[in-house]
Design a protein around this nucleic acid. Sequence first.
DNA 1: CCTATTATTGCAAATCAATTGCAGTAAGTT
DNA 2: AACTTACTGCAATTGATTTGCAATAATAGG
Lengths: 156, 156
Amino acid sequence: MRVPVLEAAAAVRANGGRMTVQRRLILETLNELGGHPTAEEIYRTVRQHDPTLNPSTVYRTLTWLETAGLVSHCHLDAGPDGEHSERYDPVTPVEHHHFVCTGCGIVIEFEAPELAPIKAAFAAEHGARVERAALTLYGVCSACGTPSEMLCLEAD
Amino acid sequence: MRVPVLEAAAAVRANGGRMTVQRRLILETLNELGGHPTAEEIYRTVRQHDPTLNPSTVYRTLTWLETAGLVSHCHLDAGPDGEHSERYDPVTPVEHHHFVCTGCGIVIEFEAPELAPIKAAFAAEHGARVERAALTLYGVCSACGTPSEMLCLEAD
DNA sequence: CCTATTATTGCAAATCAATTGCAGTAAGTT
DNA sequence: AACTTACTGCAATTGATTTGCAATAATAGG
């Protein structure tokens, strides 16, 4: 359970919001899907449980979750063709980053505490306040890099 | 001259491409603008020199420059409202990264050689090949952070 | 220098993701 | 149970980017 539904409900009631069946369903779908789904993937999955649910509700709920600080979104040039996509991601207690395989599009999360000095150095040098870092590594995952079979790449 | 026009011409002729007046104009505009313009900003500027030039030509040229390895694009949540935008950026000999001020949207480039060990560590741990890193820092620049006037922020 | 080839352009239409206005519905309150 | 108003579904809209196609012009060859 990566996006705590109850916590979400509380977070939003605090702002006069309401926990509707649609919102609950979208939250559960986020948990079920895991990974870094796009709004459209979320919509497709949600639709299987409730075909009447509208895409705009998905978008609205996602923004709502984001302002509540429960999910974040990041932009990854993922997918088999490296196409741009906005991806949603439950907020984790520790900042995490992403590796994207340019072969198969798989996204792997990792933490990078070593980023702290980089942030600090930039802040010091420019007199800026650095609040957040988004690091994305692009490359070829172990499966796609295996020369014998070109496992992931052969799909193309 | 950050995007060498002659080099671009050569790079493309090698692939049977042609250096047209439109492409030259767009290249010059990229140099003139500097920074990290969006396709739309490029189009607006180009238009001042040649009002008949079509947006699709800008998009096509940008993709062409990118496959030629002369510019790259990156996605920054910049702009005064943090709105998403695809930004184009001449390719530099050394990989560089971006700081985005959430106040005024200014983009500051910096280099981060300290990223190398992070890439290496990920590669080693996951058996992946890491080819490229995109780091974006978000925060408040020195001008916007100045409490006395809230220089950049006051616009809102 | 002129001609032929075909990459590139301009244009208009199409696409695609995401947003919005609005009237009806339902969550949470009393 | 009734009330208030936030939320939903829908349809239309937006805005950025892409595409098909006929006309144009950049380069190669003569």
